[in-house]
Design a protein around this nucleic acid. Sequence first.
DNA 1: AATTGTCCCAACCGCAGTTAC
DNA 2: AGTAACTGCGGTTGGGACAAT
Length: 305
Amino acid sequence: MVRQPYLKKGTWNSDEDQKLIAYIMRYGIWNWNEMPRFAGLQRSGKSCRLRWMNYLRPNIRRGNFSREEEETIIQLQKELGNRWSTIAARLPQRTDNDIKNYWNTRLKKRVILENNKSTSATTETYSIIEENSTDTESSNLLNIPTMDDFPEPLSCINTSPENSYSMRETFVSSENYWDIPSFMEQPLIAQGFDCEALATTENNSSIEENLPDVESSSLLNIPTMAGFPEPLTYSGTFTSSENSYSMRDTFVSSENYWEILSFMEQPLIAEGFDCVASSPNSQLWQSHHQHYYDTVDDFWANPLF
DNA sequence: AATTGTCCCAACCGCAGTTAC
DNA sequence: AGTAACTGCGGTTGGGACAAT
């Protein structure tokens, strides 16, 4: 009888994540069942696949769903039923698991509530009409919120001391949602925030008070939240047998944030794996990784280039 | 401070579809 | 054509975090 190797279950730790990421970054995805053995993981291929697809792969948007996304999910669920992968395809940065969880824990209740509300409102409307056929105010019974019910955006015009231009940032806030349009039309992801940049260059340096405490990354001016937890450091040396050089990668990670510092001394910042190479050798970096991956953009998309 | 209840989400399981042989 | 292996999907669950008592 062949003894099955011990397979770990349960929550993944950061060391396992690093191993899986490092392996896939270097060799790509070729066979989920074989991969864990080569990556030094005591996990099933299925578990690795799930971890990668739902959590570690690049371009996953995590955190709160916007109102627009909520409406899309509700609409598509109505049209398609629980076909989460199809729905996820329409929300490209969200995983089917995330959408499914969000539906099961929040949206489903809301839809049921709204349907009940709608049914009782309709009943009420009928009774009012029956009682008083001249009453024209009954269309307000459903009390559906409008855009006017949401808070006004806060805005800030800020001057960047490191650069020769000013930038405007508008923070649109609600309890669960931040939208930070900013800076040179760049779509950015900041730690814990989904940032979109819509600003134009301006020569205004006034700063309004009462804004969230945001500081800039020294490398790329990506706004980060003050007090964001210190990253953990993980490092390892990899020697490639096909090539004549060794290389060292240093991953600085926290729950939501990756920074990749090395390879040919290039400072990089990654969100998930949207990497930004800011050194003069960035072309070399990209061509190197193009060797391993089909689409450079999948792994090394740089919104600032 | 301790206990209990609730919410949320990462991860597991089983099944179906696809691919390779 | 049949079978095994692999992959993807959707339902479900375990357990951590937080709130309420």
